[in-house]
Simulated scan of single mutants.
Amino acid sequence: MEHHPKLVSSEVAALWSAYMQNTMSYCIMQHFGQVNEDPDLTNIIQSTLANCDYVKKGVIQIFESENHAIPIGFTGEDVNLKASRIYSDLFALRYIKYMAAAGTAAAAAFLEVLARNDVRTLFSRTSEMFMKLYNDACELLLKKGAFVRSPTIPPMEKAEYLQSESFLSGILGKHRPLTVMEIAHISKNTETNSIGRTFVAGFSQVAQLPEVRKYMERGAEIAAKHEAVFREILIEDGVPLPSTWDSTISQSINSPFSDKLMMFQVNSLNAIGVAGYGASIGASLRKDLGVHYTRLISEVMQFAVDGTNLMIQHQWMEQPPQNIDREALRNRSV
């Protein structure tokens, strides 16, 4: 007998999340495409839009076949294509690289919990498409001499085993040199905070509601502080600092995006930041680094909670699919 299994919770979660992220990114890329002045970026922007549209249509097709409600997500109401630019074309390219990396990682992570063939096919193809987009963005950044590289270290002279527990170092006092894994995570977290700082600085300039502008200003301060923490760690270790991200922001106060979209984008950046810090804790053997990451995670999580409350207050937080509230059914009035 031919078997037609229903969507399981992990598959619904993957599809719902992909719809939200890609409809948001589609709006952002529409604006970037509208204001783009760099001919080198035209094709890659169109590829990004096509990728996001592919995911959106794929999710709709599967949900409709299951009579599952289509998420609201983000639409033409969340982007103003007549608004002038806030960010440079180079920042748009770096956003594409960043988004493509996040999309590839998310699709690959979801594959582990997907059973149905049509859902696996969608996310397998999504992972391939965004991986190609990431590589295309990297090549263009390298061509422009704008790829932000991690610090370099001297070649290792020989392989050997650890001989002392002092390798772990204490919280205070002198610390042993950073490992390449620790440097890699510090560099990645610096990059994440840099792009986040640029985003929220621009958002704080164009947001319509005062409370949203204030929230974005706070986010820029937090990102700048976290960047400073990571750079200080590298300086103390004598590691060459990586180049900084382009943070050119125009003087425009006419927002191309709705406050709802901007808050969701920051919420996504918060989630990526917390996940990155968590991965960094697992890869960092120096105890002082673990203390730093734990403290920074706490600050980002509080910032994220405040942002979520703000979104709920303005009814911008779309409710994810959830299980039936059995207690509510039992206690319903007769």
Rank of each mutant, 00 (worst) to 15 (best):
M1E: 14
E2D: 11
E2V: 14
P5N: 04
L7M: 09
V8R: 14
V8Q: 15
V12R: 05
A13T: 10
A14L: 06
L15G: 15
S17R: 07
S25P: 00
Q30A: 05
Q30P: 01
F32M: 14
G33P: 07
Q34A: 15
L41N: 12
T42G: 01
I45M: 09
Q46V: 05
C52Q: 14
K56D: 00
G58F: 08
Q61A: 15
A69H: 09
P71V: 05
P71Y: 02
F74N: 08
G76E: 00
E77M: 11
E77Y: 11
N80S: 07
L81M: 13
A92M: 13
L93M: 04
L93I: 03
K97F: 11
G103W: 05
T104A: 12
E112C: 07
R116A: 00
V119H: 09
R125I: 15
T126S: 12
M129Y: 06
L141W: 02
K143R: 15
I153Y: 02
P155E: 08
Q163L: 06
S164D: 12
K174H: 13
M181Y: 09
E182L: 01
A184R: 01
A184K: 02
H185W: 07
I186H: 02
T192A: 14
L209N: 09
E211M: 11
R213G: 04
E217F: 02
A220V: 01
A224I: 02
A224Q: 05
E227F: 00
E232Q: 11
E232Y: 00
E232V: 00
I235S: 10
G238M: 07
V239F: 06
V239L: 02
V239A: 05
P240R: 02
T244P: 00
I253G: 11
N254D: 15
P256N: 03
D259L: 02
V266G: 10
V274R: 07
G276K: 03
L285R: 12
G290F: 06
E299V: 12
V300E: 05
V305T: 11
T308K: 15
M317A: 14
I324Y: 03
I324F: 01
R330A: 04
R332D: 01
